[in-house]
Amino acid sequence: MGDNVIEVRGLLKLYGATRAVDAIDLDIRRGEIFGLLGPNGAGKTTTILMLLGLTEVSGGTVDVLGFDPVRQPLEVKRRVGYLPDAVGFYDHLTARENLRYTARLLAIPRRDAEKRISDAMESVQLADVLDKRVSTFSRGMRQRLGIAEIVMKKAEVAILDEPTSGLDPHATFELLEMIRGLKKAGVAVLISSHLLDRVQSVCDRVALFNHGKIALMGSVVELANQVLGAGHPILVEASGVDIAGALRGVEGVQTVVAEGEGGWRVVADRDVRAAVAQRIVSSGGSLTRLADLQPSLEEVYTRYFEEARHVA
């Protein structure tokens, strides 16, 4: 299967007559962070559960690290770490006792287990609460404990379902750092989320889910080109000049659209920042801002679903 850790072909999940997951194809490469994005109920969690063999597959094939989750779920689950949406731990036990239970389920020898537990807790910066009961943990700490479980497991693939939902910005930032840490350790990471801007920053590639189908798949830039059209969007703010009029003549500029207070969004087929600056200054205006706009996943997403709705 080459460099892919997960290969999905024609995967299908039926709930009665509804197609929760509708014949999707998906490849996750070794060592990449892959985002499964889409609105709630689009089939992300169902797909994840089928990858882990936790729910029945209605059709198609799945291959995780060379194993079939339908027939060999134990082999798959030994190698894949899973952080469920709003993960739960046993509140009456300490963090160490919770991880010890997982270590026993994984049949990790007792001597190794203690070392692996403390190392894992160190890596998610929870070493100081190792012997505190989980009932005292915040939501963010629980999520990090979930990451620690995956680290302790020495998983080759980590599947994180909505890891950042319900976290404050600081906790989100820390968690995304830890996800990058997993990638550095050579783990392929699959993240499902509906929070696009947060996930965009860590994902190498993403797939947009819609009604059980993968609508778009690729890197964020590729998707932007596909949905928003090719081109370099820039943001221009200036005073004392008719920006729209001045810039229409610049070679390469395709559209000039007002955006927000005094700002203009300019799309061109090449990098036209130098020419734009020159034109505004020569027209007697004073340039206050000139920024290269990174394509945002949010924009891609919104535009895509708007169009999908129009088609429907």
Partner: peptide, 11 residues
């Protein structure tokens, strides 16, 4: 307690 899916994701 949402521990079921986490435990069942172990072997």
């Amino acid at each position: 307690r949402r521990t079921l899916s986490r435990v069942l994701s172990q072997p």
